[in-house]
Amino acid sequence: MSKAIFTKTKMLTDTPTHYCPGCAHGIVHRLIAESIEELGLSHKTVGVAPVGCAVFAYRYFNCDMQLACHGRAPAVATGVKRSRPDTLVFTYQGDGDLASIGNAEINSAAARGEKICVFLINNAIYGMTGGQMAPTTLIGQISTTSPNGRNPEVNGYPMRVSEMLATHEGAYYVERVAVNNTRNILGAKKAIKKAFEYQQNGHGLNFIEVLSTCPTNWGVSATEAMTWMEENMLPYYQLGVKKDKEARQ
């Protein structure tokens, strides 16, 4: 007799993902899906997928989904949540989608205190279009549109989105997490779950930035990618709670 010691969350479909080996999207998908299932909120969840590597997220999350135009996921989520206030709404966005073309939408949603959860998966590069410079690309980092490394004289500086959003009075909870090791993955899960609980209790905006990997476009192996993230991203994008209105009370 065999005994199941692990089962996949029902909040993910059986569709195999298209993500590259060593990409952390799969981990983050699982953390979000498990959190929703554990909270017993699957039946009322509406997710909003972005344009970017996670464009097919609607195939993987086993709940009602919408696919937004590039950067507009917070606006689409606003439309869903305002018209169906009983739903649990989240967006899943990359750093190009959210911090570059969608900067107005996320800042305004945060300022309005939308009762939604926003997950930013930051891997410091454009993945789907093939490794171009993102607003989060680090100084000196090579991309296909910064072939000699990002030069601040030309391209300015990488954007710290969590710190920026935490300045909004309307932001309820802002935390940056990483998925580079087991301890951090467990911490990320805790943050994601808390974000959903806050929304369920009528609070928003809840924002979790997840530092992630892109071995394909960083030009490193899957295992090297974790080290690359630790050495290059963690010093600039410091982990931790940037804002938690509930903890302050």
Binding site: C69, A75, G79, R82, R84, T87, E105
Partner: peptide, 18 residues
């Protein structure tokens, strides 16, 4: 009141989809 016409129509998209 949306932050822009772009955001407004995408909010319409979300609500219409709902």
């Amino acid at each position: 009141q949306a932050e822009s016409e772009v955001a407004a129509i995408n909010m319409v998209f979300g609500a219409a989809g709902a």
